[in-house]
Simulated assay, not measured.
Amino acid sequence: MSAWLATNLIAAVLLPPLLLVLLLTAGLIFHRRRPRLAMSLIILSTTALYTLATPWMGGLLLRTLEISRPIGVTDIQKAEAIVVLGGGRRIASAEYGGDTLNGISLERLRYAARLHRSSGLPILVTGGKPGGGTLTEGRIMQQVLLSEYGIACHWVEDAALTTWDNARLSAQHLKPKQIQRIVLVTHAWHLRRALPLFEAQGLSVAPAGIQFSSARIDSILDCLPTPAGLRDSTFALHEWLGILWYKLRSFLSESNP
């Protein structure tokens, strides 16, 4: 079993919806021997599922991760390159006849193309093959930029399996060219985890987040559970879990030089 697979299996167990399913299952198993415990687990899991599945809670949790506003013209003018983080692929996509980018990666790439056209800054795309497949995220992003936007990448990093890899391996491409100031394109909820990792590589980072969230309740529908609400809550909790994991790994590294 690869380290990437093991990490994602652990994360799946610690995050909804699987965590809530496990709690509910435990409640059903103990309902005869420990009725009070069983009822507590059932109420906890169902209440948590309902709450986390509401768009309001999903937006609220995503907002806790946002550390910047949309990037300004001044920040772009000071930068020397644009770095785009891959956000995943669709492996063996039937309609494309092979691996292609998922929606998250395409959203990031589209915004990077917009920033490039307004600034002329060179683009670095980064992403490997987490989970297998044929083509890396980096190579697919390079192809999409060229074929659909008419933009040629200056650098392609295609070995990264994690956000930490994205930062470390991207820096290896940029530093030989004396590039220190970058625009980092990713989702707004991903910047809290990604930005410090790039800064740790000695880079000056201007965050260019996309899809900033809302925590407002605009209608009753925001308080009703939806698949999109649960997805957003899971994204947010996954990011906080990743942040804690990186902090723990950093602490262990410092404790065992």
Rank of each mutant, 00 (worst) to 15 (best):
R90V: 13
A208D: 06
G127C: 05
L20Y: 06
L146D: 14
S93R: 11
P16Q: 12
W56N: 04
K177H: 15
R181G: 01
S213A: 15
A228Q: 14
G97F: 09
T226F: 04
G242W: 02
H187L: 04
L191N: 06
V183Y: 05
L121N: 10
V144F: 13
G209I: 08
E148C: 02
A208G: 07
L5P: 00
M141E: 03
R69G: 02
L109A: 13
G87T: 03
D99I: 05
S219R: 11
R114M: 11
L101K: 08
L115G: 02
L61V: 08
A26V: 04
T163E: 02
P227N: 06
S68I: 07
R34N: 05
N166S: 03
R90K: 14
R139P: 08
L230W: 07
E199L: 03
G97S: 07
S105L: 04
L49V: 03
R63E: 15
G120Y: 12
A167G: 07
K175H: 13
G202D: 12
T7Q: 12
G27E: 07
M141K: 00
H154Y: 06
L109G: 09
E80S: 13
L101P: 06
G128S: 04
R216C: 09
F198R: 09
R33P: 00
R36E: 01
L221N: 07
Y149P: 04
V83D: 02
V185S: 10
P35K: 09
A94F: 05
L184I: 04
T134C: 00
P55I: 11
E107V: 05
R69V: 02
E66P: 09
I91D: 00
G202N: 11
V21C: 12
L60M: 14
T162W: 01
S93F: 10
A160D: 01
H173T: 00
A194Q: 04
N166T: 01
L101H: 03
L52A: 11
T126W: 03
L44V: 08
L19S: 15
W189Q: 09
I71D: 07
P207T: 10
G133A: 05
D218I: 11
R36N: 01
N8E: 15
Y96V: 09
A48P: 10
L18W: 12
K129V: 00
I29N: 02
Y149I: 01
L145T: 13
G27W: 00
K175V: 13
P227I: 07
L22E: 08
L115M: 08
H154G: 08
T64I: 00
H116P: 06
T163I: 03
R139Y: 13
